[in-house]
Design a protein around this nucleic acid. Structure first.
Lengths: 235, 235
DNA sequence: GAGGCAAAAAGTGTATGCAATTGCTCCGGC
DNA sequence: GCCGGAGCAATTGCATACACTTTTTGCCTC
């Protein structure tokens, strides 16, 4: 009743539903294991069941909800173990990307990577977390692209997307910005040297540290009812 | 018209459509880049557009078709490069699984792995390709499970599923059975020793060789109109 | 004759209604 | 008192109808 969808910014209806539902899951408004009734959701957002169904499909593919035929959908229960497993995978994937980047990046790609990385030092000095976070995403994307392997890229981006809800607060920790830059520096240096092994381990360590900083934010541990909006797409 | 769906064995209608369409893609009856019109497909299989749409969504998630909003779906064009990228990813993923298996498998898992592997030697002697192929799938699944990392497992199984259409003929090559067993043996030996590095490289090499044997079978290279049935699910 | 605009046709996206499956409750039997 | 089955309610799956977007086609203008 209260959900007037013409207020929410556009895109196809399904996209809106995906955003709306994933937001409610990620913010803890919908608790893990909770049943997602199609009719209720449709009524809640004032749309028909059709886009809800498709949204649930997509969310299922994203790993945020689980669907069983003829039995409806529930909010995915992400255990501490599963979360750890995802971070672990992320570390391995980033390591692969870094290794491949060290071997395969073109001269131009290397130049840009290094230049942008050096430029980001400014954000660290200023303590500009917002801007650094933005750069950070771009930095990693550059690494994924540099691997020159479309499928690795897809796997990595997908995994990052699944992890996005859990890593929001990583730069809140004091000194994290400077440390992150140092870790990036190790990766960049190794890549510039073409040292794939070093690049791989540096990348893996980088993610592992982020992992530890974020592990506290498992969905199940979050208090109910948080409603502030934030982007769920990791871009 | 000709598509009597009550003859096709059961499961939900969407499942049938997924099977039917993916079969037609994989057998080359539907060519890469070809437009998939929802209405036509619905008429062809004598169902409504609703399950067709959901099937296309799933196939899109599987990577077999590509969808663009408001512009319909097309059969995914898998280039030689993309295929190589998938095999490369597969090699890396299997390497990770093997490494983790070497480190984390329980005593029971190791015992079973070794026992089953030894038992499979019999299939090699007999030249029982069918049975060996079945065992082979199970062997690799055991490896993925042994990594004790749910997300790595998911990524690996997903990638294997995407590759399944392209690796059918790998055991047709003469001597491939025996060679495959030898490669498995190297992996198993390393895992039993707990030598994760050796297990990783052995697994990577194993996949790389399979990759070379299968690379010829890119979808684009296949003649049109092949209709013999074969399983599309990699189980 | 070429380019562009507009209207119609084709096709996707969404809504609604009906069929089928699941899970539950209630009744009867052991 | 407990277990099992039949009927019923609730919910998902599928079909059909309608709305909107995109693309094509044909006409008009330059």
């Amino acid at each position: 009743m209260s959900g007037k969808r013409n207020l929410i910014r556009s895109g196809t209806t399904v996209d809106q539903m995906v955003r709306a539902i994933s937001d409610r899951i990620v913010t803890g408004f919908l608790r893990p294991g909770e049943k997602l009734d199609e009719a209720s959701l449709a009524a809640r957002f004032d749309v028909s069941r059709t886009p809800i169904r498709e949204a649930l499909s997509r969310l299922s593919a994203m790993g945020l909800v689980e669907r069983r035929p003829n039995r409806g959908a529930t909010v995915a229960v992400v255990t501490q173990e599963h979360l750890a497993s995802m971070f672990e995978s992320m570390a391995e994937l980033e390591a692969i990307c870094a290794r491949f980047s060290a071997e395969r990046m073109t001269a131009g790609e290397r130049r840009t990577l290094e230049a942008e990385h050096q430029a980001s030092a400014r954000f660290v000095q200023l303590g500009a977390e917002e801007e650094y976070e933005l750069f950070n995403t771009e930095f990693h994307t550059r690494l994924y692209r540099g691997a020159h392997s479309k499928h690795i890229y897809e796997l990595t981006v997908m995994t990052r997307g699944r992890l996005a809800p859990f890593r929001r607060a990583q730069f809140m920790l004091p000194g994290r910005l400077a440390q992150s830059w140092q870790e990036h520096d190790a990766i960049v240096t190794a890549i510039m040297r073409g040292d794939s092994a070093a690049a791989g381990t540096a990348a893996k360590d980088h993610v592992s540290i982020v992992s530890e900083a974020s592990a506290v934010f498992a969905i199940g541990d979050r208090p109910k009812g948080r409603t502030e909006p934030f982007p769920t797409s990791a871009s």
